[in-house]
Design a protein around this nucleic acid. Structure first.
Length: 819
RNA sequence: GCCUGGGUGGCGAAAUUGGUAGACGCGCCGGAUUCAAAAUCCGGUUCCUUCACGGGAGUGUCGGUUCGAGUCCGACCCCAGGUACCA
């Protein structure tokens, strides 16, 4: 028999066996409860990096563990194929994005197969396949009919030199990454999906999602950002007939402290002021030199300029000045805010800078001193300088002022969300075409269903950086479906988050010819375990949840949520850098696969850190993982050298063999808990390492002992098989003589093997460990204490001291408190 | 800025419900085997102190709760992810 472990042949044989038996091809009719295990599909950037290896190995471990537990598991794989990097490669190398993408997919698929993932490749698709994105176009038109799609102006990063829209990533220090030109904020008509219609449900459903980490639910809650407040109307002075200036605030209790109102540079009042004041016009123009990124907006210096326009305070009638400020954004809310410098820190800084009045209208309830010269007092408190409202708490004043505004018809209670509608237009080529037509006579006309898909032309050449669609007459020219006159296609494509929002559903029925999915979705949905990087905690997961609800409302999917259990992975870093397409070839696992084999790479990766933790990948662990697999190989071959043992009698085992049985079943119980409940696999690997060390130290004194050793090895092999499936596929045949491990079952637990006659307890004096005692498993408290006090080193620490307290934690420790 | 995490030996980490800090592995040191090397096996390895038994300190910093804190509470420092057009 093979004395030396040769990963290459072992892995090729195992993979050939799996292919032959089609064991990973999932069917709806197979026995067992269904289990849909899904890892976030990759962007085909060129080659796998170690972050991919981690993610897909973790998902495969879950897949193979569930399989052993008797589930009917489906683990698919596909490609998030549209996106910016393909265009960059096309611009750089002159290769069409479609060709580049297909080449990358072919290479990366080969790498995944080499890693031995138990994937059902019959379900594979790429999002750039017209058969996939046609249903996305179909669904978009459905949503358009339902009024969930609309068009409005939104800000983009505009590169004035390249004459193109830039992604936030393409803006470096406020300049275009190719042109180096200063980027401008510019308004452009864009398509939007009304995700805010679902804000309440997206928020509330989080409460029932027990399979999601609390941290992710918190992030999503804060992102949706529900807040109860009041909309307040400020009449523009001298223009009582015109529409009032409406603002939203969560702090109506501070209304009497408002000393000015600020509007966005694009606000009609700002524009009107600019017409009469060159300084205001210049200020507004300077505001355009900024990016659309929130982090930039939040950290930039807050600047503004006063206008001569005034508004009336809705309760006092006092006139307040209107300022134009760079931090007020037209696209959020009404593009105007009321400013209370006494009780909002940003307003305080702005007012201090420009010498605007600061009025205190809230004081601390506990009468602690509060100095508005050093900063705003932002906590709730008790009202002052607020006339009739003086003395009310902030909470009572909220209600009283809201009532007064509603009575005067100057305001109304509203619920507001931080969440904004989803802008899905991208001014890019390599994406799903938005199925709309612009007609001079009819306006916007949807593409008729029978004309779908609108296929993206793949034979293109890039001239400069602009989308080739913009100048491609064969794509652009189309007859208006309504009036037949010559019209033009929409040249924007969808945000790639559209494709990744429903791919999990398409995997259930990847060849469905009915819209999007067919009845197989009712069997497989929802995803039972979804695995992916923490960087997707908000956007991707929120959009996918939204899409699920949209598809549910079209009766395409069952249930309210797409992902039952969520495993969020930490980042794999290399040289302190995030692994991504920008990391180039760094972290390519290919040479490691060639040198060590897939099982060693998988084991080293799983052993390196628990799944949720970020860590820096190092090749240092590979030698150790290989050493461990070699050890397992040798132990199994040696343990079976005299043949497979018959059933053994537990009572006839030597003391050492009984200890080994206890270790064996302790390892099994812990591994089951780690795999199934804790989702922590590094400790499964260390547990099996410990068991192997114990096997190596146990001598077979008789045939019964030999049976116990083989039992330990069988369980070690089964337990580690999800991590290292190839070597265990081989070793299983050595141990069993026949059958495939992958079709085998998780071993049954033997509780009797765990029982122990005596237990070791720690003895502390004043919380410091001073000794250890062996006590009978059923020892009483008094007995334990007597034993503890008589312990030599302990009694030394008790000399001449009074015991004030005796604490006994059963089976763990004794703590004697002395004074 | 804001939201969410994280910080434990030379290194990756373990410690699950407040109960022995450092399991397991890497590296290193010593030994066995070998003509030699590789591979393998055995032993040691938080720091300071001690011939030794032992003693002291120790989980980012400072403070608190508790018989007992890596774990809970408060303040702070640093690092990472996200921040709506990277995916």
């Amino acid at each position: 028999m093979n004395a030396v472990y040769d990963p290459k042949t072992v892995e090729a044989t195992a993979q050939a066996d799996w292919d032959k038996s089609r064991v990973f091809t999932a069917t709806e009719s197979a026995a067992g409860e269904k289990y849909y295990a899904l890892a976030m599909f990759p962007y085909p950037s060129g080659r796998l990096h170690m972050g991919h290896v981690r993610c897909y190995t973790l998902a495969d471990v879950i897949n193979r563990y569930r399989r052993l537990k008797g589930y009917n598991v489906m683990q698919p794989m596909g490609w998030d194929a549209f996106g910016l990097p393909a265009e960059n490669a096309a611009i750089k190398n002159g290769i069409p994005p479609a060709t580049w993408t297909q080449d990358n997919i072919a290479y990366m698929r080969g790498q995944m197969q080499r890693l031995g993932f138990g994937i059902d490749w019959s379900r594979e698709f790429a999002t750039c396949d017209p058969e996939y994105y046609r249903w996305e176009q179909w669904f978009f038109l459905k949503l358009y009919e339902k009024g969930l799609v609309y068009r409005k102006n939104a800000m983009v990063n505009w590169d004035p030199v390249d004459q193109t829209v830039l992604a936030n990533e393409q803006v470096v220090d406020g300049r275009g990454w190719r042109s180096d030109a200063i980027v401008e904020r510019r308004e452009m008509a864009q398509w939007f999906l009304k995700i805010t219609d679902y804000a309440e449900e997206l928020l509330n459903d989080l409460d029932g999602m027990d399979g999601w980490p609390d941290s992710v639910k918190s992030m999503q809650r804060n992102w949706i950002g529900r807040s109860a407040g009041v909309e307040i109307d400020f009449t523009v002075a001298g223009r009582a007939d015109a529409a009032p200036l409406t603002v939203f605030t969560t702090r109506p209790d501070t209304l009497l402290g408002a000393t000015y109102v600020a509007v966005a540079p694009q606000h009609p009042l700002a524009q009107a002021a600019a017409d009469e004041d060159a300084d205001v016009a210049a200020f507004i123009e300077s505001c355009a030199r900024a990016t659309t990124a929130e982090a930039d907006l939040a950290t930039m210096e807050k600047t503004g300029i006063a206008t001569t326009t005034q508004v009336e305070h809705p309760l006092t009638g006092e006139l307040l000045p209107v300022w134009v400020a760079n931090f007020v954004l037209m696209e959020y809310g009404s593009g105007a805010v009321m400013s209370v410098p006494g009780h909002d820190q940003r307003d305080w800084e702005f007012a201090t800078k420009y010498g605007i009045d600061i009025i205190q209208v809230i004081e601390p309830v506990d009468d602690t001193p509060c100095d508005l010269n050093t900063g705003a007092f932002v906590d709730p408190g008790r009202l002052c300088n607020s006339g009739d409202y003086d003395g009310l708490t902030s909470a009572d004043a909220f209600a009283a002022i809201a009532d007064a505004l509603e009575a005067k018809q100057r305001g109304r209670r509203v619920t507001n969300y931080r969440l904004r509608d989803w802008g899905v237009s991208r001014q890019r080529y390599w994406g799903c075409p938005i199925p709309m037509i612009h007609c001079e006579h009819c306006g916007v006309v949807p593409v008729p269903e029978q004309d779908l898909p609108v296929v993206l032309p793949t034979e293109v050449e890039f001239e400069g950086v602009r989308s080739p669609l913009v100048t491609m007459e064969s794509f652009l020219n189309v007859d208006c479906p309504k009036c037949g006159a010559p019209a033009r296609r929409e040249t924007d494509t969808f945000d790639t988050f559209m494709e990744s929002s429903w791919y999990y559903a398409r995997f259930t029925s990847p060849d469905a010819n009915s819209p999007m999915v067919d009845e197989r979705a009712n069997y497989w949905a929802p995803v039972d375990h979804y695995v992916g990087g923490i960087e997707h905690a908000i956007l991707h997961l929120l959009y996918a949840r939204f899409f699920h609800k949209l598809m549910r409302d079209e009766r395409l999917l069952p249930g309210d949520e797409p992902f039952k259990q969520l495993l969020m992975l930490g980042m794999v870093l290399q040289g302190g850098k995030k692994m991504s397409k920008s990391a180039g070839d760094a972290g390519d696992p290919q040479k490691l696969l060639d040198k060590y084999g897939a099982d060693t790479v998988r084991t080293a990766m799983m052993f390196a850190a628990p799944p949720h933790q970020s860590f820096e990948w190092s090749e240092a662990g590979l030698e150790g993982a290989l050493r461990f697999l070699k050890k397992l190989w040798t132990l199994v071959h040696d343990g079976c050298a005299a043949g497979v043992a018959a059933d053994f009698d537990v009572a006839a085992l030597t003391e050492d063999a009984q200890q080994l049985r206890r270790r064996t079943y302790e390892t099994l119980a812990k591994a089951d808990d780690d795999y199934g409940r804790r989702i922590q696999f590094n400790t499964v690997v260390s547990g099996v390492m410990e068991l192997c060390n114990a096997v190596a130290k146990t001598k077979a004194n008789n045939d019964h002992d030999r049976g116990a050793i083989q039992e330990a090895l069988r369980i070690a092999v089964l337990v580690i098989s999800p991590v290292a499936p190839h070597i265990t596929h081989h070793l299983w045949r050595v141990l069993q003589g026949e059958g495939d491990l992958v079709s085998s079952h998780w071993p049954a637990m033997d509780e009797h093997a765990l029982s122990q006659a005596t237990i070791e307890m720690v003895v502390q004096v004043n919380g410091k460990v001073r000794g250890k005692i062996e006590v009978a498993a059923d020892a009483q408290k008094a007995e334990v204490l007597t034993l503890a006090k008589s312990c030599e080193n302990v009694s030394r620490h008790l000399d001449n001291k009074t015991i004030r307290k005796e604490i006994v934690v059963p089976n763990k420790l004794v703590n004697l408190v002395v004074g």
